[in-house]
Amino acid sequence: MRLYGTEITSRLMLGTAQYPSPAVLAESFRRSGAGIATISVRREAGGDRAGAGFWNLVRDLGVALLPNTAGCHSVREAVTTAQMARELFDTPWIKLEVIGHADTLQPDPFGLVEAARILTDEGFNVFPYTTEDVVLADRLLQAGCEVLMPWGAPIGTGLGLTNIYGLRTLRAQFPDLPMVVDAGLGLPSQAAMAMEMGYDAVLLNTAVAKAGDPAAMAEGFARAVEAGRLAHEADPMEPRDMAAPSTPVIGRAFLS
């Protein structure tokens, strides 16, 4: 999988928030095999070195880093946050979040496109957290995005793929574009479904970090992502309404 010219071997992307401890975070990443970790920037008090400790932890994970603009509700806020993240993490990659609705954390589509255009013009590689809206997707591509990250469900809900029709339509509209289902996944089966539908990768955080055994859940997701991808590449059969016997009919003994 190539994302902005970078080859990423794993199709599982994992967040770094909400783990019970740094050790569990590291073990979860190890068992997930994730190739990309999402991270953020937050206020730091003078004399505090929490940022340095976390930076050492994620650097040791040995994965590509994707900083986000989580919590930003305006274009300016998101752009400034992205600029600070680029300097802190020395990467042009940015997971662009411009939130438009507090309860659902649904992206603000208008602000998202505007921020994506500004950041692309400034040399960023924008990974927009978006909805499954195909018109919005097209606008984001026009703004310079080369990857899209539609939500499965609102962040942190664990509801899975709430609009399968919309996600299938989006995949069909842009068959060659790298697309990542980002947010809302709660179970490995939901990740497998996204991969079976042809999505290139999934990004999740809460489903692993809030599991009773995060590292085991991370491995569960890794296996599901691999299974779903294999199934997609294997060209699945078409479903049908009527039964069709799988065992040969010819040669059956007549015993009535």
Partner: peptide, 10 residues
């Protein structure tokens, strides 16, 4: 002034 550092994120 805003002063930020690396933190956990999803």
């Amino acid at each position: 002034i805003e002063i930020v550092a690396p933190r956990q994120g999803g």
